[in-house]
Every structure is written in C-alpha cells, then in structure tokens.
Simulated scan of single mutants.
Amino acid sequence: MTTNQPISALTIPEQIFLWLRLNMFNIAGAIAVLVIGLFLAGVISRWVRRAMTASPRFDPTVAEFLSSVVKYALWIVVLVTVLSQFGVQTTSILAALSGMALAIGLALQGTLSNVASGVMILIQKPFKVGEAINAGSISGTVQEIGLFTTELKQFDGLFVMVPNSELWNQAIVNLHRHPIRRFELIVGIGYDDSMAQAKKELLALAEGDERVLTDPAPQVFVSSLDDSSVGIGLRVWCATGDYLAVNWDLTEAAKARFDEVGISIPFPQREVTQKAA
C-alpha cells in the first residue's frame, strides 16, 4: 500500500492503517497523557482524602466528597488534554461542559444547596451526632449527618429528617456542646413574706444539692415586683447532663421548703371596690 494513491481508493482497513501511521506520535502522546493523568488524578485525590481525614476539623464524609470532586475535575482536564492531541477544538467542548454544568446547577439548585449546607455543617461542626439542638422550630438529638439531610430524634421520640439548607439557614442552639449550663428558678412570694428568708431557703437548697457547682457559685436575688407577688430568683450552674434533673428537683424542693417554713406562693389576685350608688 502506498500513500500516493487517493485515500478514497483505499479500503477501510487500509485507511485505518494509514491514519494510525500518520498519527502514531499523537496517539502515543495521548495514551501517555491518559495513563499518567489518570494515575496522578488518583494519587492527588487519595492525598487530599488522607490529608483531610488526618485533620480533626474535617468529617470523613467531607473528605470523601471533596476528594471525589478533585478526582473528577482532574479527569475532565485529562480528557480535554487528550482530545487536544488530535487537533480537536477544546474551546467548544469546554463551552459545552460549562453550559451543561449551568443547566444541571439550575435544575438541581435545591439539591446543591443542601449539599453545600451539608459540607459547611460537616466542616464547621455546629453539632455532632448525639448532641441535642434547637434550630427554629426543629428540636431533637442528632442521629446522622449526611450531605443532603440530617436525621434527628425529637424529644418526644419521633423521627424527623431535615434538609441541610433549612438547618444551616437557622440560628442553631447546641444544648450539649458546653460541659456546664446555668439553671434559673424564679419563685413568687407574698408581699407580707420575708424576702431575706426566702433567699436564704433557696440558697440552702442549692448548696445542699451535690449536682450544683460551687464555681460559679449559686446566686439568689429579687428578680421582680409583680402585681401579686415578689419574684425571688435562684441561679445555679450544673453539668449539662444534670440540667433537667436539677431543674425538676429544685423546683419541687422550693415549693416543699416554702410550705414547710410558712412562705406563701400567692396566685394572681385582684381587688375590686364597689362604690355605693
């Protein structure tokens, strides 16, 4: 077979052989770029995953997700480079890929928003699995954090799955992040009762409870002068895990102690004066 005869006169196998002979260097270069590029993409993505996993700031889910993004982005770069070896105009390909990415982004706007919010939650860590949170109308204990949704167990035992974008756009109150919490109790006493004695009794209750911390020390104070009562306040600090038990026990103990020493807890009253016609 000679190359002097017209290509149209050659058989298909001869045309293929001729094309391979004329483009052997481009083919070899493309294969080399493909092999080396895919190898480097795998190495770099694994390095990104290991580096992020080694840092306590990044969740393993985020490390896996971002390493996959890096790998696929490098694959696209390798593919475009290989095509350019054969004289393909990569500008049009890049423009088409950009258009596809924009269309997919618009179609999956809500989903991508959840993914972005999930990544931010996993990186910033406003809450972790096992912690209880309040976020707007959502309350519960975190069961699982995913890229799209977060699963919680409500305090009444019900299961709730929340899109990550809804959580990320709310002010998140983490009920378990800090080791200690402050509890405040306000008890109303009658105007005829002794404020000093009421404060003394509440302080004695706090000091007698082993769960109440001594640093910060308990505080008692007059919180308000209401229509039918004087508000006596008690502030104590306790371990976060003891908060509910301390809340319930001190509230019950305050009522029992005031009944025991004769301090009244009045209910709202209103005096009505009727004038004779």
Rank of each mutant, 00 (worst) to 15 (best):
W248P: 00
N23I: 09
G110M: 12
A256E: 15
Q85I: 02
Q85V: 05
V119Y: 04
V43N: 09
Y191L: 03
Q109Y: 15
N4T: 08
G208S: 01
T81R: 02
R50H: 11
R270V: 15
E131V: 04
G208A: 00
K153C: 03
S92R: 06
D59A: 14
I138N: 04
A28L: 14
V115C: 05
L122Y: 06
I180D: 07
V142M: 04
N26C: 07
V162I: 14
F155C: 00
L18I: 00
G241L: 08
F258M: 09
Q15G: 09
S55D: 14
P56W: 15
G105E: 09
Q89R: 05
S98I: 15
A245E: 15
A206V: 08
A256W: 06
S8N: 07
I123S: 05
Q219F: 01
S224F: 07
W237V: 06
V162E: 05
Q85H: 14
Q154V: 05
A198K: 00
V230Y: 07
V43Y: 13
L244W: 15
S224W: 05
E252A: 15
E201K: 03
W47H: 12
S223V: 08
V272L: 11
L10A: 13
I138P: 00
L20A: 12
S137K: 05
G231N: 10
L175P: 01
I12C: 03
K199A: 08
L38V: 12
A277S: 14
A32L: 13
I76K: 00
E207A: 03
N174L: 04
A107C: 09
E184N: 10
M120S: 15
N164Q: 09
L203R: 02
M1P: 13
V236L: 12
A206F: 07
E252F: 14
A95I: 11
K153S: 09
F65P: 01
K199G: 07
I31H: 12
T251V: 10
V220E: 04
M52V: 11
E201T: 13
M161E: 14
G99H: 05
A96W: 11
G87L: 00
L167Q: 01
H178Y: 07
A254I: 10
I7Y: 09
P56L: 14
W19C: 02
S224K: 06
V220M: 01
A32G: 11
V119G: 05
V48C: 11
V43R: 10
S117C: 10
G157D: 10
I16A: 09
D192F: 06
L244C: 07
T273M: 13
I189L: 00
I186M: 10
Y72K: 00
F86Q: 01
V212W: 01
P60M: 04
S45T: 13
A30F: 08
V33W: 08
K255Y: 15
N26R: 06
S194L: 00
S139P: 01
Y243C: 09
I232S: 02
V173G: 00
G188L: 08
F183N: 07
S228T: 15
H178N: 06
A116M: 11
E252I: 14
V220N: 04
G208N: 01
L74Q: 04
R181K: 12
S194C: 02
A9F: 03
F127N: 03
L40P: 05
C238P: 03
S229E: 13
L97V: 11
K153P: 01
